[in-house]
Amino acid sequence: MLQVNRRPKSLLDVKMHYCPGCGHGIVHRLVAECLDELEVASRAVGVAPVGCSVFADHYFACDMIQGAHGRGPAIATGIKRSKPECIVFSYQGDGDLASIGMAETVHSAARSENITVVFINNSIYGMTGGQMAPTTLIGQPSTTSPKGRDVKVNGYPIRVCELLSQLDGARYLERTSVHTAAHVIKTKKALKKAFQNQIDGKGFSMVEVLSMCPTNLAIAPKDNAKFIAEKMLPVYPLGVYKDADAPAAGGK
């Protein structure tokens, strides 16, 4: 018999602490597969965020660093500028990247820092216990918006890909999802491109991945997948928002 799938070498053979149905495990595996397939594992350095995936530094087989909340792109910048031969990725959640770390996100993109950012958008704060995220949908309840996100009080969700697409320095931006197996496969393709871009020296690449947080949405994982399909996709449409390789919008 032939084994169809194998655990990527870049992911350590340890049990992950994530909740049942959490998307982090899927995306961790995809990132590790990219490092393996692009043969960059021996020079990869990952930046773990603050949030549930703070423990990413215990799961990836490459050198890892864990820093302050939201500062992943700044830390990645410091590593990449000091050791340009390294393949540096910053793995971040929505509170980390789009709230407290928005400045670092925007400016690392504006500088076109040659790094790869993996952005998990699950519309909620995970580790701290289900508070409202910058990506929480209008009307979506959270522990700090128990009656649902009210735009009069909490404003509107942030679409990070759309926002960054206005920056010349952002070279590749794609939003994908992991709520179905088919979308997982597409996410892998996007991540691989985001890493290939760094290898090719093309500059800032980010993949935003819509993902599940069943514990804090207080729904079953399969219902969380449904939530993404029905509620998140209309607000966060999937697709490529920027590809410096492709002809610019409005061009011939």
């Binding site: 302050a68 830390i75 590593i79 670092e104």
Partner: peptide, 26 residues
């Protein structure tokens, strides 16, 4: 060497966190 005008002091110190972790004098 590398020089970066950071977007803030917060970003600057975190760039140092990354750079110093590679062993470079920062």
């Amino acid at each position: 060497g590398a020089f970066i005008q950071a977007e803030s002091e917060v970003a600057a110190i975190n760039m140092l966190f990354g750079a110093a972790a590679t062993g470079v004098r920062s």
